[in-house]
């Protein structure tokens, strides 16, 4: 299986994630989609690393994982807070700054 197939898979995953972010309203699902996009990036990095024969891409993938983990912690905490305040996980209901 050529590494190029992994790149195509990464692109497909990224597009699925992006569409998920754009069309979903539930904050948790948007979060999942964002994670999907991040991991598709990781997959692309790793694939390119393999193609190029150096470790740079793999190192970056680790950084992305760390940032994603931190982001998930903070983001889920915010989500919890919003849910408690608004009784809803829909991003459209978090509109206190509007009007």
């Amino acid at each position: 299986m050529s590494p190029a197939s992994y790149v195509f898979l990464a692109v497909i995953l990224f597009v699925i994630g992006a569409v998920g972010v754009l069309v979903r309203r539930n904050a948790i699902l948007i979060f999942l989609s964002v994670e999907l996009m991040l991991n598709s990036c990781n997959l692309a990095f790793v694939s390119f690393s393999r193609l190029r024969g150096n470790l740079d891409g793999q190192v970056v993938a680790f950084f992305v994982m760390v940032v994603a983990a931190a982001e998930v912690v903070v983001g889920l905490a915010i989500l919890m807070a919003i849910y408690r305040a608004r009784r809803s996980a829909s991003v459209d209901d978090a509109n206190l700054l509007k009007n």
């Binding site: 754009l22 309203r25 991003v91 700054l97």
Partner: peptide
């Protein structure tokens, strides 16, 4: 319009 997804779409 205040919808996160439309901002995300423009970013995309």
């Amino acid at each position: 319009n205040g919808y996160v997804r439309s901002y995300a779409l423009s970013m995309l």
